[in-house]
Design a protein around this nucleic acid. Structure first.
Lengths: 148, 148
DNA sequence: TTGCTCCTCACGTCACGTGAGGTGGC
DNA sequence: TTGCTCCTCACGTCACGTGAGGTGGC
């Protein structure tokens, strides 16, 4: 029982604007199979999206931008994510604690891989930022010296 | 009096490997005018690079990767950088304090623009990272609950 | 009914990758 | 002299951008 059934379906332009992309990009992702797309859509008719669709696409574009992965890699990440979701469902369906531990341990590597990617990027950024800070600090110092 | 005259000139493959790129990329940057390139090189002969060349190219590729700018924007950044270098030289050549203050104030906006770009990226990354941390925290929490 | 947004081709573009065929320097 | 790296075209590729010409729904 999500809010999707209650909210108005969105058109591709609205979706694109909300997540900061273009209709062409969304169509392209559908083209290469990154988005499910034309489930029960007649050819030539408008694509319609739910709030859940928007959130999922939002996640995709953020990963693409922040990690700089290719759409092929992104597809693999999506598949890993779906694998984790499947594990989560399994977790809820079992009562065995041994089984649950196995499931959690199977899910952890996926998360850790993502974390490793992000941390690498962050470290590079912090290095650059500190260098720029140093430059600014020196400039402000010079400015102060001029005032005296 | 840099170390360049003392060190052995590098070939394009060595340069590419050291900064983690490819010869093709370096040639392409020369092609579009991002790198000076064929100063006094005869057509068909090998390109040669100094340590200073390597450092400058390193800075370019880092900016490209970390800020995700286009090569056209990168060219503009390079030009801004060169403008700042010129201002620095002017700063050293004058004795007037008023003049020096003007020069410093002219240089600051360039630095601040670069900082703004970097900060934006950093904020996005931190948001993503905290979300991933939260996910990991929840998984570890679950694991602890299983142990009890 | 009028506009606006959507649709499907299909070619263009940016930043290189990838051979093809040939030459340079330790 | 033998290899390895380099050279210059020149076409290929990835992730879309950009019209062209036409249709859908408030």
């Amino acid at each position: 029982v999500t809010a999707d059934t209650a909210t108005r379906p969105l058109r591709i332009g609205e979706v694109a604007e909300r997540i900061g992309t273009t209709p062409r990009t969304i169509r392209y992702y559908e083209e290469i199979g990154l988005l499910p797309g034309g489930g029960g859509r007649e050819k030539g008719k408008h694509r319609l999206y739910t709030e859940t669709d928007v959130e999922r696409l939002q996640q995709l574009t953020r990963l693409r931008d922040l990690l700089g992965v290719s759409l092929d890699e992104l597809k693999q990440i999506v598949e890993a994510q779906e694998a984790r979701d499947a594990l989560r469902r399994q977790w809820h369906e079992t009562d065995s604690e041994a089984e649950r531990l196995r499931i959690v341990e199977e899910a952890l590597p996926h998360v850790e891989t993502q974390l490793r990617l992000v941390r690498g990027r962050l470290a590079e950024l912090e290095k650059l930022e500190s260098e720029l800070e140093e430059r600014r600090r020196r400039l402000l110092q010079r400015r102060r010296e001029l005032r005296d």
